[in-house]
């Protein structure tokens, strides 16, 4: 098989690793079965600071951080708590922070790190810890319940084309890992009491419904009100960490913000307000 360098037109999947260490020497090291140090921030419920525990992990080719954590669980610390399911970046269960950066543990390859240094794993900081790497994400499920559900239009034939659904489909790629919620400034420093703010994940969900060509509802009023979309100052951190490559800021938040302005804050368009905002 070819091992040539990625060509110029390589996808974001490759370029997203920019800045990480990935020279040949380290790759070779990763293949030799040597050990490296994994430091895991452990603690029980309510212990937000936790304690750092170091573990020796045997390297295997192509190993990801989740493999290393499961190695520790199987060999050193069987009561270590970590959520995971698919191990293929499709379920979003294993969200945590690796060397301070929000990531999916199953999608983070060890050969992208300098393994002479320990690799640090801690739980998502925006949510209260239950144990070790597992946090209480139930707040997200409560937010989700508030979103106005899809309601199918009955005033036109059920006929539409691929280009009509591209935007909705992009939004629906979300795997609900909540990394965007974790990195969001509005939520991250809010402590246990979350503000009246749905967060990027649920702006994406609402946008996905609003973009559906056969949806009879409009969520822009809700997003502007209890959703708190105005608090977002579009720093795009959510977009950067999204493992599903959704352009959260550009394709969901900004269009919904613009629609909110058009519908509620533009004095000229205000006269059409009772007709709701035009859907994209």
């Amino acid at each position: 098989m070819s091992t040539q360098a990625a060509p110029e037109d390589a996808t974001s999947a490759t370029t997203r690793y920019e800045g990480s260490v990935r020279d040949e020497a380290l790759r070779a090291q990763a293949r030799t079965g040597r050990t490296f140090t994994l430091r895991i921030n452990r603690g029980e419920h309510g212990d937000s600071a936790g304690r750092w525990e170091s573990y020796d992990v045997e390297l295997a080719a192509g190993m990801v951080v989740l493999d290393a954590v499961l190695f520790v669980q199987a060999k050193h610390a069987p009561d270590l708590a970590v959520r995971w399911n698919c191990k293929a970046a499709k379920c979003g269960s294993c969200a945590a922070e690796v060397n301070g950066r929000p990531r999916l543990l199953c999608k983070t390859r060890l050969e992208d790190f300098n393994l002479a240094e320990p690799v640090l794993v801690q739980p998502m900081q925006t949510f209260v810890r239950i144990k070790d790497l597992v946090t209480d994400v139930s707040w997200n499920y409560r937010v989700n319940e508030k979103i106005i559900p899809f309601r199918a239009r009955t005033d036109r034939p059920w006929k539409f084309y691929q280009r009509d659904v591209e935007k909705a489909q992009e939004m629906r790629q979300c795997i609900e890992c909540f990394l965007c919620q974790d990195v969001c400034h509005v939520l991250r420093y809010s402590g246990e009491e979350k503000p009246a703010f749905f967060g990027p994940r649920f702006f994406v969900r609402a946008a996905g419904l609003d973009f559906h060509p056969m949806d009879a509802e409009d969520r822009v009023g809700q997003l502007r009100g209890e959703g708190g979309i105005g608090l977002c100052n579009i720093t795009k951190c959510c977009t950067e960490v999204c493992p599903a490559n959704i352009h959260i800021t550009d394709d969901a938040i900004i269009p919904e913000k613009e629609r909110a302005v058009d519908a509620f804050d533009d004095p000229f368009r205000g006269i059409f307000r009772r007709n709701g905002a035009p859907k994209p």
Binding site: E44, Q73, P78, D79, I130, D132
Partner: peptide
């Protein structure tokens, strides 16, 4: 199983 009943993978 060892440890507490809190999210205990071994148990």
């Amino acid at each position: 199983a060892a440890g507490s009943r809190l999210y205990n993978a071994m148990w």
